[in-house]
Design a binder for these strands. Structure first.
Lengths: 192, 192
DNA sequence: CGCAAAATAGACAGATCTGTCTATTTTCTT
DNA sequence: AAGAAAATAGACAGATCTGTCTATTTTGCG
């Protein structure tokens, strides 16, 4: 059994920096050398851990997926036991994210955009994140008594993605309010 | 007054090819030389018409904006005078687009994604297209008696953007149906 | 301590990119 | 037909990119 190293492993340093730079600037525009310099890691260390830049991008996306969903879950859990409060907590989470300084839209939509071929591994990795979020929304819809939780979750996911795009495009958290109001209306319709 | 040339001007040949390749593959990944070779145009001709690649991208986006909106308007007009039919025609348009072979998501969302800085001219050009579509939706909402047409149009725009992302990610026109159903529900709510 | 594994710096290949320049040819207009 | 404007091919600069290789140093572990 391998002991946990006191300092972050080189692999983790690499992924943390890659995650940040890819999200801030883009996937194609950020070069390997920039990440290496900022992470303080040698090039061969990168290529010992990842076969190619694309694999690093995929690892960064998977890392971000884990972190974002853990953060969503934490916010939902903190909202208590009321299904409606838990449902609305997703939009609190969204609003806080939109208002944060680092917000630059959705890393996964942006990955889908930069790698538009459906067969591309990066494209598929990005979509898996959306599916995982839809699963979360389905659970919330179910807990709120929606008649077709999966259908509602799909629609909510679209609404949220549109809000993210609008918030990014306008550099404003305002679209969250419209999304929240609409989501509430749709939830009422789905339980009526 | 300049006579209209029988053949397409070099500028137009360039923009048509650029538009197609940028949409198919992406903005950063497509090089100038590729566009020039495919368009059959010399490099200096490009730089006599456009100061830089970014300006070509902006011109291509503006061209696509004009074409897409003209196509939307044509579909809406062809739907006749019934405000509801005209409203729903937008989703017919969307569905046909999703089902087309060339469909690769929204060129403007993808431009926002590749140029995530809000100050970037390409970012702003892309957002102007979304604003123009929201204007169209506002008119349709008004004609259908929505109490707050602008608010409904904003929400519909988000829903549509989310549907485009989902259709692109899954390479399937299915998300359009959910968007259409939801749009109808929201329209009813907005007029009640 | 001593060895094996991991990480290092840095050169390197080979390709690609945007944008510039020149000298020549084609095209359009009068 | 003549002159002006537009377009051409192609070389070129200078930067950047991913990925490989080597020789050396650092690190972790028994």
């Amino acid at each position: 059994m391998s002991a946990t190293p006191a300092t972050l492993s080189k692999r983790d340093q690499l992924m943390t920096t890659a995650c940040r730079l890819f999200y801030r600037d883009g996937y194609r525009v950020v070069g390997i050398d920039t990440i290496l310099a900022e992470a303080g890691v040698a090039k061969m260390t990168l290529y010992n851990h990842f076969p190619s830049k694309d694999d690093l991008i995929i690892a960064a996306l998977e890392k971000r997926d884990r972190e974002l969903r853990a953060s969503m879950v934490a916010t939902v859990e903190a909202a208590g036991r009321s299904p409606l409060k838990r449902f609305l907590a997703m939009f609190d989470w969204l609003e806080a994210w939109f208002a944060s300084d680092e917000f630059k839209g959705c890393a996964f939509i942006r990955a889908l955009s930069e790698y538009p071929e459906p067969e591309h591994p990066i494209h598929q990795t990005a979509w898996r994140h959306k599916l995982a979020v839809i699963d979360m929304l389905t659970e919330l819809a179910k807990a709120n008594g929606a008649k077709d939780p999966a259908a509602l979750a799909n629609t909510l996911s679209m609404l949220i993605d549109g809000a993210i795009v609008a918030a990014h495009a306008t550099d404003s958290p305002a679209p969250c309010a419209a999304a929240r109001t609409t989501a509430l209306s749709l939830l009422k319709l789905a339980t009526a």
